[in-house]
Simulated assay, not measured.
Amino acid sequence: MLAEYFVVIETVGLNLFFAFIFIFIGLSINDVMKKNDVPKMGRYVVYLVLFLGCAGFIAKGIIQLVWESQGVG
């Protein structure tokens, strides 16, 4: 049974790994900004860049899912 679902397990594990990495990056950036007293505008820019990076991975996953369901990939 494990051999049949190896690709699915691998994909879910990789997606969870990326989610945890983005969470840890966000927490570490938040800690550094609080310790260095960064202005609010700077914090907003940093969080926007972090969100856009995360959104890129989400968009890639959605595009990949759609293409594979249509038989393109």
Rank of each mutant, 00 (worst) to 15 (best):
M1S: 13
L2T: 08
E4N: 09
E4P: 00
E4L: 12
Y5L: 10
V7L: 11
I9E: 07
I9Y: 10
E10T: 13
T11V: 07
V12F: 08
G13C: 09
L14T: 13
N15S: 13
F17H: 07
F17I: 10
F17Q: 07
F18Y: 14
F18L: 14
F18A: 08
A19K: 04
A19L: 13
A19D: 05
A19G: 05
F20A: 12
F22Y: 11
F24C: 02
F24T: 06
F24W: 08
I25A: 05
G26E: 06
G26V: 03
L27C: 08
L27D: 05
L27W: 10
L27I: 11
S28M: 12
I29G: 02
N30W: 05
N30M: 05
N30V: 00
D31L: 14
D31Y: 14
V32A: 14
V32L: 14
V32R: 10
V32D: 06
M33T: 10
K34C: 01
K34M: 05
K35F: 05
D37K: 11
D37A: 08
V38P: 06
V38F: 12
V38Y: 10
K40Y: 06
M41G: 04
M41A: 14
M41N: 09
M41C: 02
R43G: 09
R43Q: 15
Y44P: 00
Y44W: 07
V45I: 15
V46C: 10
Y47N: 08
Y47K: 12
L48Y: 05
V49D: 06
V49P: 09
L50W: 01
L50I: 03
F51P: 00
L52D: 01
L52C: 09
G53R: 03
A55T: 02
G56E: 03
G56D: 02
F57I: 14
F57Q: 03
F57A: 07
F57E: 06
I58N: 00
I58S: 02
A59M: 11
G61A: 02
I62A: 15
I62V: 15
I63Y: 12
Q64T: 15
L65Q: 12
V66A: 15
W67D: 15
W67P: 00
S69D: 11
S69H: 11
S69C: 04
G71W: 04
G71R: 06
V72E: 11
G73N: 13
G73S: 07
